[in-house]
C-alpha cells in the first residue's frame, strides 16, 4: 500500500506540485541530512547540497524517473551528487585524488561521547568499525538506518545483490570477531540496557 501512495506523491512532485514537495521535504530531510554528514563533515555544505538537489530535481520535472520508494531515490541521488563533486584536477600524468568517502566513525564517536562510555571500550568500538571498509560501513547504514533492501543497495552501487550480502556478512563477522576478543571490557559498556 505504501508504494502506491509514494508513487502518486512522487508523480505530483514531478509535475511541480508544491504540497508534494513540502511533504517529501519534511519526510526525508533528516535522513538525507544524516546520510550526507557521513560523507561531508560540514553541516552547512550538506544542507546546501540537499537544497541544490531538490532544485535540480524540480528542474528536471517529469523527466525524472518514476519511483515507488522516494527515500531510496533521494538517498541515491544525494550520494551521487556528493561523491561526484570530488574536485578533479585537469589532465595530468598521475594524480592524487581525495575521494569523498562514507564514514560512520565520526558519528559513532560523537555518540560514544554523549553516552559517557569508558575510554577503553570507546577505542575498541571505534577500532572495530574502523576495520570495516567504507562500503561496508555504508551498507550497514543504508540497511539498518534507512531500511533499504539489499536489492536497492546493490542498485546504489550498480553491483549484484549477492555482492552486497557478502559484504554485509563479512562486516558482521568482523565485528563479531573483534568483540569476542574484547568481551570483558565491552560488557561493562553494553550491559545493562538502559531503561526507557
Amino acid at each position: 500500500m505504501k508504494s502506491i501512495k509514494e508513487n502518486i506523491l512522487w508523480d505530483s512532485f514531478r509535475q511541480g506540485n508544491k504540497d508534494a514537495l513540502e511533504i517529501i521535504y519534511e519526510e526525508n530531510y533528516s535522513a538525507l541530512y544524516y546520510y550526507g554528514l557521513k560523507f561531508i563533515k560540514d553541516r552547512d555544505t550538506v544542507k546546501d547540497n540537499i537544497q541544490e538537489l531538490f532544485l535540480e530535481l524540480i528542474k528536471s520535472g517529469d523527466r525524472l524517473a518514476k519511483t515507488d520508494n522516494i527515500r531510496y531515490y533521494l538517498l541515491r541521488a544525494l550520494r551521487y551528487k556528493l561523491t561526484r563533486k570530488t574536485p578533479v584536477k585537469l589532465i595530468g600524468e598521475t594524480e592524487v585524488q581525495k575521494n569523498i568517502e562514507f564514514s560512520l566513525i565520526e558519528s559513532v564517536e560523537h555518540q560514544l561521547i554523549t553516552k559517557e562510555v569508558e575510554e577503553g571500550s570507546k577505542k575498541k568500538i571505534i577500532n572495530a568499525i574502523g576495520k570495516l571498509s567504507e562500503k561496508q560501513q555504508e551498507i550497514i547504514y543504508l540497511r539498518f538506518y534507512n531500511n533499504l533492501s539489499y536489492q536497492q543497495i546493490a542498485e546504489v552501487y550498480g553491483t549484484k545483490m549477492q555482492t552486497v550480502r557478502n559484504l554485509m556478512s563479512r562486516a558482521l563477522h568482523s565485528l563479531k570477531e573483534d568483540f569476542r576478543n574484547n568481551r570483558d571490557q565491552l560488557l561493562l559498556f553494553l550491559l545493562p540496557i538502559p531503561q526507557p
Binding site: 533528516s30 559513532v108 538506518y145 565485528l175 568483540f179
Partner: peptide, 17 residues
C-alpha cells in the same frame, strides 16, 4: 549477546531535524 554488541556498536541516535 554477540548480536546485541554488534547492534550497539553501530547504534546511532539521530534525532529527527
Amino acid at each position: 549477546q554477540i548480536a546485541r554488541e554488534i547492534v550497539e556498536s553501530i547504534h546511532l541516535e539521530e534525532k529527527p531535524i
